[in-house]
Simulated scan of single mutants.
Amino acid sequence: MSAAKLLDERPRIADAIGARALIEAVLEALGALSHLVGEETELVRAGRLPEAMSREPRKTELAGVYMRGVEQVKLNAVALARFVPDQVKRLKEAHLAFQGLIETNQIVLATARAVSESVIRDLAADANRPMRANGYGPAASVGAGAFARPNSGPLMVSRRL
């Protein structure tokens, strides 16, 4: 039986076999989710954002399965602690490792967002910069850098000089 199917049934734990099955189902969902989040993190680091975003629906689905599993673990906490305390410890360790993975993922996403915003801000500043040569007008400066940027627009000449 798949983890999602088992977790949708909302089992009441009455023995060690049921307890072990619940923990294994939650660990299976967590493992799949961890793998997907790790892939997403690496894709964002590599700048392959469209590919990373294509994993979002599956990530949402796995997160839902995992959260349902966590709810089942909470509902059956006493039985789990009594029947399979070693498995409960294993689940807690896996959850802590997953939290670390999520923190790394959030840092990578925040960095990508900051870089994107910086690029957009720089492009907007360049697009809004005055399009005339520095050598003309009241604030004219002559010498190095007095030449217009490429594509700076038409050149105006004063005949009164």
Rank of each mutant, 00 (worst) to 15 (best):
M1Y: 05
A4I: 10
K5W: 06
K5I: 13
L6I: 14
L7A: 04
E9W: 12
R10P: 00
P11K: 08
P11M: 06
A19Q: 03
R20E: 15
A21W: 03
A21G: 08
I23G: 00
A25I: 09
L27I: 07
A29Y: 09
G31C: 01
L33N: 13
S34V: 07
H35K: 14
H35S: 05
V37W: 07
G38Y: 04
E39H: 10
E40Y: 04
E42A: 14
E42G: 05
L43A: 01
R45F: 07
R48E: 12
R48M: 09
R48C: 05
A52W: 09
R55E: 11
K59M: 08
E61W: 14
E61G: 09
A63N: 15
G64A: 13
G64V: 07
Y66F: 14
R68N: 07
R68E: 15
V70C: 06
Q72V: 01
A81T: 10
R82L: 11
F83S: 05
V84W: 08
D86Q: 11
Q87P: 00
V88D: 07
K89Y: 01
K89M: 00
K92T: 02
E93I: 06
F98L: 13
G100T: 08
G100V: 04
Q106G: 07
Q106F: 08
V108H: 06
L109F: 02
A110N: 11
T111G: 13
R113Q: 15
E117A: 14
S118T: 12
R121I: 09
R121V: 10
D122T: 09
R129H: 00
G135I: 12
S141I: 03
G143K: 10
P150F: 03
N151G: 07
S152W: 00
L155P: 05
R160M: 09
